[in-house]
Simulated assay, not measured.
Amino acid sequence: MKKMLFPIVLLFVLLISACGNKASEDTNDAADTPKETASDTVTYESETGPVEVPAHPKRVVLLSGFTGNVISLGVPVVGVDTWSKNNPTFKDELKDVAEISDENSEKIIELDPDLIIGLSNIKNIDQLQKIAPTVTYTWGKLDYLEQHIEIGKLLGKEQEARDWVDDFQKRAQAIGDEVRTKIGENATVSVFEIYDKELYVFGDNWARGTEILYQTMKLKMPEKVKEMALESGYYTVSTEVIPEFAGDYIVMSKYAEADTSFEQTETYKNIPAVKNNHVFTMEGNGASFSDPVTLENQLAFFKESFLGK
């Protein structure tokens, strides 16, 4: 009887041992398999180096524009600079958003931001970095469409940004083709702005629709504008020399309180673009932005002005 039980007991022990070894192997395999964990932050490669930022920011503070970029991507904004707050383009979107400044850290702290965005020349950046991850951009380092894609990367919305850029380029280029067909391939366009008592003319990357007109629609710039404003971005013009900078068509960015007395001078009235009713006036307040919201409005304005549709 004992001889019969021994093989049965031995078999039972071997089975238990085998099961134990299998469990141990499963445990070790599980330990070797990395766990997928959702991170709340990502590393963004900024101009100044890597910055840990929220993967999906919910309370963004903007200190130097870029407001329309963030708004267009559906990311919540809790504080903006004075120029953005007073921009009529964003009136509805910023109705309940606080106006802040890089010189008032206390007010920014109260807003409890999870991300701060601004230009590279903002003040008190060391203090701002202690409040929330802070990312800055140098004006003009990226073109106006690349800038939007870069902000899309920062906000975890790169694909949405790229989709808009691709679509906008196609539409703007098509409108540009129509405009050049209508006004002639060699017709020139100048972009002026009257602010306070100063009159400026702009190159091809200083907002006011210049990026759309010159870079994407491929309209031509007068030689004098190219000489004086292309590299610097803008140039201050006196009333006497306006005709030297005036193209066959003029886009005039005008602030409501600006001194427009130059428009009453014979020098201005005798400019061919003025005599031919080829001056298109746009609202100055808000024209200095180059974000998707502003660009869409400007493209519609140019389409209506040049093509009447």
Rank of each mutant, 00 (worst) to 15 (best):
E99R: 04
P57R: 07
A187E: 08
I175N: 00
V77T: 10
S190Q: 04
M252N: 00
L5M: 08
L119E: 11
A174I: 11
R171W: 01
K218S: 14
S305A: 09
L119N: 09
E47C: 00
M1G: 12
K269S: 09
N87I: 12
I117T: 05
K107Q: 13
F90I: 11
M4H: 15
A172D: 15
V274E: 14
E146V: 05
E211A: 06
Q173M: 10
K218R: 13
N270I: 06
D92G: 05
A287L: 04
V75P: 05
E227M: 06
I175K: 01
D40H: 11
M252L: 12
V279T: 15
G74C: 07
Q127D: 15
G284T: 08
E106R: 03
S232A: 12
A18E: 07
C19K: 11
V293L: 11
V189F: 03
N186P: 13
E158N: 06
K226L: 14
K182M: 03
D40W: 01
P222Q: 10
K224Q: 14
D96N: 13
K269I: 05
M221G: 07
Q169L: 03
D143G: 10
W206E: 15
L154F: 11
G203Q: 02
V9F: 09
T48P: 02
P88I: 04
G203F: 12
T188P: 08
W206C: 13
K95W: 04
I117N: 02
A55Y: 09
K197A: 04
T48M: 01
L199G: 10
R208V: 12
